[in-house]
């Protein structure tokens, strides 16, 4: 099994191996071989399209957690320019699971706050696998309030397996830190756009996820409890995670239908990791469009709309 492909993608992986082999053989410019490569490429594209148009909820969870899935730090230099990272919550420490700072979005200053899982092993440990502690949420809040003072829109990138469940997290008040963010973000006097780029897991995701516009990447997922956690409670076994994922409706298509999210950004065929630049371009275009729309609305009206939107959840 090719580790760069998920289980349901293995037929694509096999085709890609064939293409690669043919490319090696075909260095002597044999016309038949290049023809064959072209056919295989087309076949691979068709297969990818077929597989990805029928993704189950659980398959989507796997794409959202794909080891090559682009993270916040992959998007930062592609979507924004001129990023300066700002550190620390001013009370306890700096949480590397949340990255924040000032950048420009097509020239306009913005505050960017994103959860970062980390790529290499050492990096993952440093980032705590993208599981923020209270100081992460408090840093985010500090930066959001700074954005409010300097009239910068806030853009959050959500990608976390959840807030960190540990002794220190509880000691320093992880619940309170998340709750304060929910309350503060509900009336932060600047446009707030939240993008779920990968895995949006529960309160840990929502802690930087309240704003004027909530959008998901096509194969991102957003859930109140991980499918494994849900399966463990209901079926007493994580083997039922696919059932739990389907029952909870964790995908962008279901959540948009339910009216929970406002929009979905289509991903490149086969997922964001197949073409990070294209994905970043689409995110950038979407953000620019939304900020232009939000800046047309008088501030008080925007805040009232945000509040009414929150009040309407579930109605």
């Amino acid at each position: 099994m090719n580790p760069n492909y998920l289980d349901f993608e293995q037929p694509i992986a096999e085709l890609e191996v064939k293409i690669e082999e043919l490319q090696l053989v075909g260095s002597d410019a044999d016309i038949n071989i290049s023809e064959e490569i072209r056919t295989l490429r087309e076949k691979s594209a068709r297969l990818t399209e077929k597989i990805f148009t029928n993704l189950s909820a659980w398959d989507t969870v796997k794409v959202a957690r794909h080891p090559q899935r682009p993270y916040t730090l992959d998007y930062l230099p592609r979507v924004f320019t001129d990023f300066d990272e700002l550190h620390g919550d001013r009370h306890f420490g700096d949480d590397h699971a949340i990255v924040g700072g000032i950048a420009r979005l097509r020239g306009r200053p913005v505050m960017v706050i994103g959860q970062e899982k980390g790529r290499a092993v050492r990096d993952k440990v440093m980032r705590n696998f993208g599981m923020p502690k209270p100081e992460g949420y408090r840093k985010a809040l500090r930066l959001m309030q700074m954005a409010e003072r300097f009239k910068m829109p806030v853009i959050t990138l959500i990608d976390t397996p959840g807030a960190y469940p540990g002794i220190d997290s509880e000691e320093r008040g992880i619940s309170e830190a998340i709750a304060q963010n929910l309350a503060a973000m509900s009336r932060l006097a600047t446009p707030v756009v939240c993008v779920v780029i990968g895995e949006g897991s529960s309160g840990g995701a929502l802690g930087i996820g309240v704003g004027d516009h909530l959008v998901m990447l096509q194969y991102a997922t957003y859930f109140v409890i991980s499918p494994e956690g849900c399966a463990n409670i209901i079926w007493k076994s994580t083997a039922n995670a696919p059932d739990a994922a389907a029952a909870m409706g964790v995908t962008s298509s279901v959540l948009q239908e339910l009216g929970i999210i406002d929009a979905t950004i289509p991903e490149p065929m086969g997922g964001a990791h197949r073409d990070v630049d294209l994905m970043a371009e689409r995110i950038q275009a979407h953000l620019v469009g939304q900020l232009e729309r939000l800046e047309q609305i008088p501030l008080e009206e925007m805040l009232e709309q945000r509040y009414q939107r929150l009040m309407s959840y579930g109605n």
């Binding site: 929910l182 009336r187 529960s202 309160g203 929502l206 339910l258 929970i260 959840y313």
Partner: peptide, 22 residues
């Protein structure tokens, strides 16, 4: 939060926090 209402439950956190803020 109640699992069976999935994200609708999660959003009740934001909703209740917003009214408390008011």
């Amino acid at each position: 939060a109640r699992m069976q209402e999935a994200l609708i439950s999660l959003m009740q956190m934001a909703k209740t926090s917003a009214v408390i803020e008011r």
